[in-house]
């Protein structure tokens, strides 16, 4: 497997990689060309699989020796047994799913812990666009409303409400600006200044 030094990993992936302990077994939903899986395997002895639908990404993942499985998260994760992974990761894909809530539920069924990242619709730049009467086009949401894959955008507050309603415990949270830094602005007003949100979740039911 190719070695990718941490600095070459996409910043949000780099952050997530620090949350995943060595020798664990993970599932990466929407794994792209498998950069995270390849890095974690090489550096931490992490094993697991990636799910992906894009042909070019799949071909690239196969070429670098990643365990990529062609499949659509929207079709569900029935093929994976309950509790078969330590971590289930989904980066920047939640907002493009048919039913993000069902997907997270499935992630917490097949895995002990879920890690999700998404662009925050509540960021002040998005709000300004909406106040101006337009759908937002920002650095983290660059597409037009009609050609965007993002069909279920949410804010940090929306997301935390969803977690609460479903009994998902937020065990870790990292709210970042576009440069993937967390600063005083994000801490001061998370929903206004977060551009990319990263959450670690566990299912409360299983704890009991």
């Amino acid at each position: 497997m190719n070695v990718h030094p941490p600095e070459r990993l996409r910043p949000d992936l780099s952050l997530i990689s620090d949350w995943i302990p060595p020798q664990t077994h993970i599932l990466d939903l929407g794994c792209g060309e498998g950069a995270l899986l390849a890095y974690l395997h090489e550096e931490r002895g992490v094993t697991g699989y990636g799910l992906e639908i894009d042909e070019d990404e799949i071909a690239a993942a196969v070429a670098r020796g990643v365990n990529v499985i062609q499949g659509d998260v929207d079709d569900g994760l029935q093929q994976f047994a309950t509790g078969s992974f330590d971590f289930v990761v989904m980066t920047q894909a939640l907002q493009a799913l048919q039913r993000p809530d069902l997907a997270i539920g499935e992630m917490l069924r097949v895995g002990r812990t879920a890690i999700v990242t998404f662009p925050n619709f509540g960021h002040w730049m998005a709000r300004i666009d909406v106040l101006g009467g337009r759908m937002p086009r920002t650095r983290t949401m660059p597409d037009n409303w009609y050609d965007s894959d993002n069909i279920h955008l949410c804010t940090v507050r929306d997301f935390e409400t969803l977690c609460q309603d479903n009994g998902w415990r937020i065990t870790r949270r990292n709210l970042l600006n576009h440069d993937h830094q967390d600063g005083w602005l994000q801490r001061f007003s998370p929903n206004l200044f977060t551009e990319i949100a990263v959450y670690m979740l566990e299912s409360e039911q299983r704890r009991i």
């Binding site: 799949i58 365990n67 499949g71 078969s84």
Partner: peptide, 21 residues
């Protein structure tokens, strides 16, 4: 083919799966 893949995944064996249009 997915049955083969799922069995390999359940056994934690390295596998890649491609469904060709």
């Amino acid at each position: 083919s997915r049955e083969i893949v799922h069995a390999l995944v359940a056994a934690r064996k390295p596998v890649a799966y491609v469904s060709v249009p």
